[in-house]
Nucleic acid binder design. Sequence first.
DNA 1: TTGTAGGCGTTATCAT
DNA 2: ATGATAACGCCTACAA
Lengths: 337, 337
Amino acid sequence: MDQVTIKDVAKYADVSPSTVSRVINDNSCISAETRQLVREAMNKLGYHPNEIARSLVNQKSRSLGLVLSRPADRAMANPFFPDIIRGIASETQAQQFQLVLTAAENYDSERNEALRLLQNGSIAGLIVMAARVDDDLIRRLVESDYPFVLVGRSPNNDGISRVDNDNIRAARRMTELFIDRRYERIALLTGPENYVVSRDREQGYRQALEKAGLEYEEDLVYRSDFTYDSGRRAADRLLAETGESIDGVFAVDDILAMAVMRSARDRGFSIPGDIGVAGFNDAPLASLVEPALTTVEIPIVDMGRKAAEMLLEIIEEGAEPGDEHILPAEIRIRDSL
Amino acid sequence: MDQVTIKDVAKYADVSPSTVSRVINDNSCISAETRQLVREAMNKLGYHPNEIARSLVNQKSRSLGLVLSRPADRAMANPFFPDIIRGIASETQAQQFQLVLTAAENYDSERNEALRLLQNGSIAGLIVMAARVDDDLIRRLVESDYPFVLVGRSPNNDGISRVDNDNIRAARRMTELFIDRRYERIALLTGPENYVVSRDREQGYRQALEKAGLEYEEDLVYRSDFTYDSGRRAADRLLAETGESIDGVFAVDDILAMAVMRSARDRGFSIPGDIGVAGFNDAPLASLVEPALTTVEIPIVDMGRKAAEMLLEIIEEGAEPGDEHILPAEIRIRDSL
DNA sequence: TTGTAGGCGTTATCAT
DNA sequence: ATGATAACGCCTACAA
């Protein structure tokens, strides 16, 4: 309708469409005066290059997709979500790319949606928040040779570009903090076992114990989903069963740590006096609860930015995938331990 | 490259490209057998319709944009953010649309970015989280006649499609709850005055007071940004200055209510014994703090879904903008009041 | 029911 | 330095 095209501008400036195109992409040599002329015509007519048409002729879109890799509701409750987007957006913005979200009801449809976007050319690459140990999406991305970057870790990372924080190390250091502070029997409240984060953090916990000559006890490892309610149930069981034989609980997620704190308080335990508690992720509420939660801060904004940067290098510069960037996580010592 | 086109399918199935096209859009009448034939060819070759090309020929993209309408960092810390996306995504997904995020460093660049996406055809319409009283973006959207839907309210809503919760009414009811429970001097901790939400909630507070024959006192109204730190400073001032002459504080945002609670506790006030506190938004932390925060739950997921639905009606069915949907907010009574 | 041809807005190649 | 022309992948009259 009222779409102003390159031809309108050309006509108005009395030049050919190609000339206008050249000013837009200001690479080829154009005389200063025609350039000026065309610029004026563009302003006059209110011309804006049609991105769709450019994408079509260039055979690639200027969009990146983001797939959260777990049911939308869970992902949204997750403090990662806003920050990862913030990081990615800052980079896409800088490089004039757009960010497309795939947010479906369940993981299967989200995975299919992401693939569809790739296949139909809507997006040029994908950023995947890798969660599951056995991730079908990743396998298919590798097979299909689509550009993608992993935020997190997958069991086999060969040839996969990824950015991660060192969950194992951070969990180890947090466990060491418990030990340094003379906690002697530290329980672990971890997440579902098909999540890579769960496994990594469990491993760090175990490493620290063994290094300190403490026994790793299966009985002290409890598991729950990454929700408050599930965490609360697990915490209740944990405290009921291990009773007063433990003096610390390391939860692999702040929301689980919150559940532990609440459960402990309801049982009359003082924190950190009777039981030390630590979390992971440094969610917004970690610093607001009483006592403030000692936790691990993950540079999630930076991870997002880095992921986008890596993906754009693959897309724009044909970089070979396979790079790994492990960003450091920081322990935030507060009052719960 | 390895892009399979409609022509490849046509050749393989030994039909013309238009026939394939017809199968894709299965509207025109096609004999069952050719349809079958083409379908098989598509599967065989792994064909996927190129969305870019479709957008170009159809002269509109199948993407919606979302602009958060305040600095990214603020917006992200805001509990609205994940939920509004969830709501929008569920609707876009259902109608085979994509969701594009505009997330820039500051409001100005975000606004420009959104406009750019509209102008260059990347998105077919925009959902705007209206925040400011004097919102330039909205003015320009109206002028340019781009399809958009407001989540929230703008000073002049004529001809603007929008979905909102009734902030005034909810604030009034919350204030009435204070009054019903025999609180007698209720202070208000509100947000910046150029935000529509602040104003609306202030108004509800005032209405309730006046209706109950209580005096509206300017001195009891404090203002801060929507951040914990800013809220904390305001709360400190509030409690220092009004001293023990007040017995309730209504904060127009949970994060501010958290700040009030903390400040009150530090001063030795018990909650709700000495001071009743209420918030707004029902952020995740509201139910987790001690005492659990009485607040207003906003149906933000539904608002997002509704906004997307309205926008798609305008885009797809040429509906006239101007509809308003006001969704009910619910008071969540917990322990802080 | 199916095929042919032209065009959506842009860029790239080849002339001039 | 600039212009004409042919794509990019798809859709849609119009024709057969």
